[in-house]
């Protein structure tokens, strides 16, 4: 059984590696292809791990890997509050 990297969306290590084999080279591309980072915490937990996995696979320095974009809201917010 493969390790879970994104716990919100339950995306496994193997699924992320497969996305990289399919052509993903940035954190946003991995996110779009697998949903890792699309859940309630919006990648706060897995973003760094995904960055390192891409760097490892592409044999690049982790500082070269494009990280994902940040968008409002910072925390999930109920619609009635808006």
């Amino acid at each position: 059984m493969s390790k879970i990297i994104c716990r919100c969306e339950e995306v496994t290590e193997e699924e992320i590696l497969q996305a990289i084999r399919d052509g993903a080279t940035t954190v946003d591309e991995v996110k779009k292809f697998t949903r890792a980072g699309m859940g309630l915490c919006q990648g706060r937990t897995c973003r760094k791990a995904v960055e390192r996995m891409i760097a490892n696979e592409l044999k690049e320095d982790v500082s070269e890997i494009k990280t994902s974009s940040y968008r409002a809201p910072v925390r999930p917010i109920k619609m009635k509050v808006l």
Partner: peptide, 11 residues
């Protein structure tokens, strides 16, 4: 009914 549902992201 959606008033208590959370927005988690905007784009």
């Amino acid at each position: 009914i959606l008033k208590d549902v959370h927005i988690i992201r905007t784009f």
